[in-house]
Amino acid sequence: MALLALVTALVLVAVGGLHVVWAFSPWPLRSREEFASRVVGVPPERLPSPGLTFAVAGLLLVAGYLVVARAGLVGTPGPAWLTVAGTGGVAAVLLLRGAGGLVASARKDTPFARLDLRVYSPLCLALAAATGLVAALA
């Protein structure tokens, strides 16, 4: 269980790191327009603000911490039930994002929808399953 928790947390932290980069840059894409279309699925003027992007990054870092804390790999302040509830909450949010993305993107033929069906939603569902396992079994 420790290895699953560690790998899951590392992926969550890596995705959080990507969000930090995205607050400043459209990397790995060349322009904000391409980034808006392929990564976020909105017109460039509707891209989330850097503040919101940092908030998502922070939540992903907290999610990674909760996963390793639930597995007992790092210490936790407060009662143990907080890591159980927190990790379960992370799993639920990732499950909703993954399932919701599959449903919403199945009806569209856009660059974002294609990536959502192939990459973003499956990744969220895999992370939801791994986080759920850690929450339930650690």
Rank of each mutant, 00 (worst) to 15 (best):
P79Y: 05
S121F: 04
V39T: 08
G72R: 08
V134Q: 11
P77N: 09
P28D: 05
P111G: 04
G100H: 08
T8V: 03
V7C: 00
A113Y: 01
R118Q: 15
G58N: 10
V68D: 06
V11G: 10
A14L: 15
L4Q: 12
L66I: 11
E34M: 07
T131M: 09
R32W: 15
V84T: 15
P122W: 03
L73Y: 01
L4W: 00
L123Y: 03
V7A: 14
H19K: 01
L60P: 03
R38D: 04
E33W: 02
L73Q: 06
T76E: 07
V15Y: 04
R30F: 04
F35T: 11
D116M: 12
S31N: 07
A80C: 00
A135V: 13
S121W: 00
P77H: 12
V74G: 10
R70Y: 03
A55E: 01
P48T: 05
R38M: 14
P111V: 09
P44E: 05
V15M: 10
L133V: 15
R46W: 10
A130H: 06
R114C: 03
G98S: 09
L133H: 13
E34Q: 14
T87R: 05
A69C: 11
L117Y: 00
E34N: 09
A126W: 06
V67C: 13
V119A: 11
A92M: 06
A135F: 06
V84H: 14
G41N: 05
L3D: 14
A80W: 08
A85S: 11
V62K: 10
A91P: 02
F54H: 15
L96I: 15
S31I: 03
G17H: 11
H19Y: 01
G132V: 06
